[in-house]
């Protein structure tokens, strides 16, 4: 995998938009791998009992998928210095074979004097913005 070069980055450039599927089975597997077994992420009965529309994805699953737009763009996941998001709406995952989709885009906000690059991300699911203030700072060779 080749690494993105700092000199090749232009402010305002868009990162390739990607769409990631999220099904109930993804949430079960993510619960196990991350250790977050909150039942709102796998138990519809429980989710509805606490006022949610249905089972919702782990915010961290969405953050992980959105991060792939950055790491696949830089070619080096170790390039990430800062990565921060705010979860603005839940990703509602129905109990069917298709599940939900998360669509992620990105744009270069700035090239910084310390050799880093700041990227802003957007993420939508089911017509809602699911991440806001989603920002990554990457250090490029």
């Amino acid at each position: 995998m080749s690494r993105l070069d700092y000199k090749a980055v232009e402010v305002g450039a868009r990162l390739p938009e990607r769409t990631f599927p999220v099904r109930r089975s993804d949430l079960v597997r993510y619960a196990g791998a991350s250790g977050d077994f909150n039942p709102i992420h796998w138990n519809e009965r429980f989710a509805k009992s606490v006022g949610l529309p249905d089972v919702i994805a782990h915010g961290m699953f969405t953050m992980a998928e959105a991060g792939r737009v950055i790491t696949d763009w830089t070619g080096d996941p170790g390039s990430i210095v800062d990565y921060a998001v705010r979860f603005s709406a839940p990703v509602v995952v129905p109990d069917d074979d298709e599940g939900a989709e998360i669509t992620v885009g990105g744009k270069v906000k700035s090239k910084n004097e310390d050799g880093t690059v700041t990227v802003l991300l957007t993420a939508r699911s089911g017509g809602a913005k699911v991440l806001v203030k989603a920002t990554a700072v990457v250090r490029l060779p």
């Binding site: 995998m1 990631f20 993804d26 993510y30 791998a33 992980a64 792939r68 080096d76």
Partner: peptide, 29 residues
Amino acid sequence: EAINDLNPVYLDQASAKAMGYPDVIAPPT
């Protein structure tokens, strides 16, 4: 695998070392 990201730098020691890391690295989250 749980985040469906099979980047070789997470999975393959040789790929990670080729990028200058001592061993496979972990995804950012």
